[in-house]
């Protein structure tokens, strides 16, 4: 029997630490894309709550700490870290489809500000806020997971580009700080 080796989206590109910023891959075993059928959002939310303890998220919000529900577009969310129950929704298994990188550190927001047009100030973009936006030339998602940490996600095929862009931005930030010293 052939034994296959599972590779994570970012593989051996991560972890990295550059200046004050660290880049670590976030591995989520199960991700299901959920798009409730017309008029079924409340029913879907109730069914999710009964099954995994969290409802369908409001726009631009990510809820839950164990299993999570992350809004990812109009009428769409990702159920992460739990198997998805039967719902009155279009459900698509997207486990392994996303590359997720945790950007953590004092300069995390400054590094991301080089790549995204999003307003990442803590007063505007709080813990539990998520947004679909641009990361360099890629469309993806950014979620604030803490005071100095963000989760950045793009489709798996763009994992290496994401790591490259984040690394470049972090190196530029770091270079700027060390040359000014």
């Amino acid at each position: 029997m052939v034994k296959l080796i599972a590779n994570t989206p970012c593989g051996d590109l991560l972890p990295r630490a550059i200046g004050t910023v660290s880049l670590d891959e976030v591995i989520v075993d199960q991700i299901t894309f959920v798009a409730p059928f017309n008029g079924q959002q409340k029913a879907v939310s109730d069914a999710l709550k009964a099954a995994i303890g969290i409802g369908f998220p409001a726009p631009n919000r990510c809820i839950g700490t164990g299993p999570r529900a992350m809004w990812c577009g109009m009428g769409q969310a990702l159920v992460m870290g739990a198997s998805c129950p039967d719902l009155a929704a279009q459900c698509v298994d997207q486990s392994d489809a996303w590359a997720i990188v945790k950007v953590h550190g004092v300069d995390a927001a400054a590094v991301l500000a080089r790549l995204t047009p999003l307003d990442l100030r803590a007063s505007e973009f709080k813990r539990g806020h998520t947004a679909r936006t641009l990361i360099g030339h890629m469309t993806g998602g950014i979620t604030r997971s803490g005071a100095q940490s963000f989760e950045v996600m793009v489709m798996r095929s763009m994992a290496a580009t994401l790591v490259h862009e984040l690394t470049q931005a972090a190196e530029n930030m770091h270079g700027r700080e060390t040359s000014l010293r």
Partner: peptide
């Protein structure tokens, strides 16, 4: 109306 004020690039 869903996301709030966003940059024109999006």
């Amino acid at each position: 109306p869903l996301c709030g004020e966003r940059d024109r690039r999006e």
